[in-house]
Nucleic acid binder design. Structure first.
Length: 350
DNA sequence: TGTCCACGTCT
DNA sequence: AAGACGTGGAC
């Protein structure tokens, strides 16, 4: 501990629920996080010094909503195939969606390709440095723009994801969670905590701490470098009764069924793309949407000609919607949103 | 086995 | 500005 006066506070604006923080505490916490990160950072490829800004942007978009372990193999494949934005912009969307695999939220893949085209066309194939220009790219919001500015270009940015918000909230405000929506006031408050130097290490370290130690459910405070400095620990780790954990409905939702339809299209395209014929990669809409009772012997033969993975993917769709009416409607939506396209013989990836 | 969880962007 | 958006692994 420093022996500076602990009554000295930052110039952070007064923010409801977010206390002013003594400067000395801030300096201690910054040092602890940065030192911890230097010893405990996972050796991820996008953290290598030679990682391109493009590779970092791709990683950040993939990592939205998705754990590192699932991102890693797809990110490697993407970087091998599309090492620059222009490479991705030139790829067929079907290849992009297949390479996205089951990362989830396939719209992110399409937006990433739109972003690649924008960078190739308007930014000389170079990922922009400025947060406001990054923010203008499709699929890039406040978090991703700040993360790229910080991690790819070393700019002093306020990187606030749910991990950082949770760590800062616990350490400085003794609260278990932050409310769902990120306000401008909270961003200003957090911005006052970003050090003038080593801000990249601070940003990355706070995220890493939130991901590995200061987790939402079972924080490993025994291993935490901030345990002695943590207001939440000092307060006895109070749980916040106002926090309602949202449990998204999943079973029976359109999202679930859409995912199953997309899996059919990916599987079919991947396995059947041996010729240029539309027919080869299309799946008869009828096989997906006909009520089970109306499937004919011809339909059964058509199914039998397909490979087992495709049949299983189709069966998954039919299990979720034996009636076929929802499937038909969702296929319309997918086509409208550019995730699928119609051909003379059925439905396929765009 | 299922239930819970992750949590940024867009509209 | 609350809700939609996908998936698989942890518990």
């Amino acid at each position: 501990m420093t022996h500076r006066r602990t009554t000295q506070v930052t110039r952070a604006p007064q923010t409801p629920g977010l206390p002013p923080v003594p400067q000395a505490r801030v300096a201690d916490v910054q040092r602890l996080v940065i030192d911890w990160f230097s010893r405990n950072a996972r050796p991820l490829p996008w953290r290598e010094p030679d990682a391109s800004a493009w590779s970092i942007l791709v990683c950040e978009v993939m990592s939205q909503q998705t754990p590192v372990a699932r991102v890693l193999p797809r990110w490697r494949e993407w970087m091998r195939r599309w090492p620059s934005p222009a490479d991705l912009a030139a790829a067929p969307p079907s290849d992009v969606l297949i390479a996205w695999d089951s990362l989830g939220y396939p719209r992110r893949a399409l937006r990433l390709q739109e972003t690649a085209a924008a960078i190739a066309d308007r930014h000389g194939n170079q990922v922009p440095h400025e947060e406001d220009r990054l923010l203008a790219l499709p699929g890039v919001g406040a978090y991703t723009a700040a993360a790229v500015a910080s991690f790819a270009y070393g700019r002093r940015a306020v990187v606030l994801d749910v991990n950082v918000r949770r760590v800062l909230g616990r350490v400085f405000a003794a609260v278990e969670h932050r409310p769902a929506s990120l306000t401008a006031a909270e961003k200003r408050w957090a911005g006052a905590l970003v050090p003038a130097r080593e801000h990249v290490e601070w940003n990355a370290g706070a995220m890493e701490l939130g991901a590995l130690i200061c987790t939402a459910r079972n924080p490993d405070c025994d291993s935490c470098p901030l345990a002695d400095a943590c207001a939440w620990v000092a307060a006895g780790k109070p749980s916040d009764p106002t926090v309602v954990r949202r449990t998204q409905a999943w079973a029976g939702t359109d999202r679930q069924l859409r995912g199953a339809i997309m899996k059919v299209l990916r599987t079919a395209h991947d396995e059947l793309a041996t010729s240029d014929e539309e027919q080869a990669v299309s799946i008869s809409t009828h096989l997906l949407t006909a009520p089970t009772a109306e499937l004919t012997a011809d339909d059964a033969e058509a199914l039998a000609r397909l490979s087992e993975p495709i049949r299983k993917a189709i069966a998954a769709v039919r299990d979720l919607d034996a009636d076929g009416t929802r499937t038909a409607r969702l296929i319309d939506d997918l086509v409208r949103d550019g995730l699928a396209s119609r051909s003379s013989t059925g439905i396929r990836l765009p």
